[in-house]
């Protein structure tokens, strides 16, 4: 464990908690892409099946349980409890265009052709594009609530910190996982446009609105 990975995990945890609290406190999921949240729940489910097979550490196990629990709770709030506030018309990204290619790629390019490893690889590839429905929804509505932008910033920052963690681990431990690194670079690049808007607008107290 190094400081970059620890802060990456804490940033990821913050993002998940911010979103869950935002929906719970405001009793509304307006502006939130339910499709992205379903993809994240799939990402955690397929990645953390090793909860059943191997124990790494208390930290590892507890964080995985928290991620899975919160992501399913978020999906439940969006599609069940606060369903009336779900903006389905703007959450129209075709996720099958993500899941099918990612599934195919996971079968073709992986470290080991075993079920758990292919599911882990699928989860890594899926996570890199899972935010697309949310970014697409913001481009369609032309704006995002400030709390949603903080959620997105933490979500994007987490994998950016993981990139630094991988540089650290390669240099100090000689460890690198090309699949996770390439997917992590793609994932972080997808946030660049948002990062620019976040820094130039939200951090200056303005609302995030896109030229519609």
């Amino acid at each position: 464990m190094n400081i970059f990975r620890l802060f990456g995990d804490l940033s990821h945890l913050a993002a998940i908690i911010i979103l869950l609290l935002k929906i719970w406190k405001s009793r509304s999921c307006a502006g939130i892409s339910g499709k992205s949240q379903i993809l994240f729940a799939i990402v955690f489910t397929t990645r953390y099946l090793d909860l059943l097979t191997s124990f790494i550490s208390l930290y590892n196990t507890s964080m995985k349980m928290i991620y899975i629990g919160c992501s399913y709770a978020t999906v439940y709030l969006i599609y069940a409890k606060f369903r009336a506030t779900y903006d389905g018309n703007h959450d129209s990204f075709r996720v099958e265009f993500l899941i099918v290619p990612v599934g195919g790629l996971a079968v073709l390019i992986n470290h080991d052709f075993s079920l758990l490893e292919i599911l882990w690889t699928f989860s890594i590839y899926l996570e890199s594009v899972a935010i697309l429905p949310q970014l697409f929804m913001i481009s369609k509505t032309g704006e995002a609530e400030t709390i949603t932008t903080h959620y997105l910033f933490c979500q994007g920052l987490y994998r950016a910190l993981y990139l630094i963690n991988w540089i650290w681990r390669f240099y100090f431990e000689g460890f690198f996982d090309m699949i996770a690194i390439v997917a992590g670079v793609v994932q972080t690049i997808l946030y660049c446009d948002f990062f620019y808007l976040y820094v130039t607008k939200v951090l200056k107290g303005k609302k995030l609105s896109l030229p519609a």
Binding site: S54, M63, W120
Partner: peptide
């Protein structure tokens, strides 16, 4: 460097 046997990252 070889890939990890068990994935130790979240």
């Amino acid at each position: 460097a070889d890939e990890p046997a068990a994935h130790d990252e979240l």
